[in-house]
C-alpha cells in the first residue's frame, strides 16, 4: 500500500526527517510512536503532501505509484486520508456541506454515518467552531467514513478524548481499517500516531515504529515497543541507533 524510501523532509529550511524508510502492506495497520517533536506529524503530513513540507530526498510510493510530487488533493483522491490532530475552524462552512462536497455518498448515508458518530446535530454547524476535543475527533472520523480512504493516517486519535468517546472513536477507526473483516480479506491500511497506546484496546496493530529525532530507530511489535517506553521512557530510544 505505502512505501516510503530514504525520505528527507525540510520544514522552514530545517531538515526534520532524515532517511525515513517505512513499508505498510495492504490490510496492515501500523503504529508510530516517539517523543514530542520527533517528527511524527511531519511524517504524516509529508506523506499526505502538505505544502510546507519540502521533500529534499527520497520518494513516496502509494499503491505502486510514485506520488512524491503529486498534489495533496490528488493523493486524497487516490485513497489517502488523514485525521487531523488540530484541524482548523472554517467560519461559515457547515460540516454537512463539506461532507456533501467531498463525496458521492448519498445524503441519507451521510446522516447515518453522522448519527453513528453522534454528530447528526453538528451537520449544520461551522466546522470545528467551538467543538470540544472529543467532538473534533468524532468529526474527523466522520469525514474519513465519508471519504472512505484505502490508507488512513491518524494523528493522535485518542488525545483530548474522554473514556466514553474513546470507545466510539476507537471502534470506528477499527472499522475504517477493516478490523471487522477477516484478516485475509482486509484491503485497507492505516498508520496511527499514539502516545498512550489506548487505541490498541480497540484494534490490533501489525507493527510499531519508533521515531526519534526525525529517524525511525526501530520497528517491531507495537505493544512491546509501547511497553518499553512505559517502563523505561524514551531515553534509550533516543540513544539507540538500531536501524
Amino acid at each position: 500500500m505505502l512505501k516510503v524510501e530514504n525520505l528527507h523532509v525540510e520544514v522552514g529550511g530545517k531538515e526534520v526527517l532524515h532517511n525515513v524508510n517505512l513499508a505498510i502492506g495492504e490490510g496492515e495497520t501500523h503504529v508510530l510512536m516517539g517523543p514530542n517533536g520527533s517528527g511524527k506529524t511531519t511524517l504524516l503530513r509529508s506523506i499526505m503532501g502538505f505544502g510546507n513540507y519540502e521533500i529534499t530526498e527520497g520518494r513516496i510510493l502509494f499503491k505502486g505509484h510514485d506520488v512524491t510530487d503529486v498534489p495533496l488533493h490528488e493523493r486524497a483522491r487516490y485513497g489517502m486520508g488523514l485525521m487531523f490532530q488540530r484541524p482548523p475552524t472554517i467560519s461559515g462552512l457547515k460540516l454537512g456541506k463539506l461532507l456533501t462536497a467531498m463525496s458521492g455518498v448519498h445524503p441519507e448515508k451521510i446522516y447515518e454515518y453522522a448519527e453513528s458518530m453522534k454528530m447528526a446535530d453538528f451537520l449544520e454547524r461551522d466546522i470545528n467552531a467551538n467543538f470540544s476535543g472529543g467532538e473534533i475527533k468524532r468529526s474527523e472520523v466522520l469525514q474519513l467514513m465519508v471519504q472512505q480512504p484505502d490508507f488512513v493516517m491518524l494523528d493522535e486519535p485518542e488525545s483530548g478524548v474522554d473514556l466514553e468517546n474513546i470507545a466510539l472513536i476507537g471502534n470506528a477507526i477499527a472499522r475504517l481499517v477493516e478490523k471487522d473483516r477477516h484478516i485475509v480479506k482486509r484491503q485497507k491500511s492505516g498508520l496511527i500516531i499514539t502516545h498512550t497506546g489506548y487505541i490498541l484496546d480497540y484494534l490490533e496493530a501489525d507493527a510499531g515504529h519508533m521515531l526519534c529525532d526525525g529517524e525511525i530507530r526501530c520497528k517491531g511489535n507495537a505493544r512491546e515497543i509501547l511497553k518499553v517506553i512505559q517502563e523505561r521512557g524514551y531515553k534509550e530510544c533516543i540513544e539507540c541507533t538500531k536501524i
Partner: peptide, 21 residues
C-alpha cells in the same frame, strides 16, 4: 489544505471557503 486533504482541488476548496465566509 484541510479541504484539499478531503479531495477537493484548490479552486473548489477556495470557493467552498469563500461561500462559507
Amino acid at each position: 489544505e484541510y479541504l484539499m486533504a478531503r479531495g477537493l482541488d484548490e479552486e473548489v476548496a477556495t470557493a467552498t471557503i469563500i461561500r462559507g465566509f
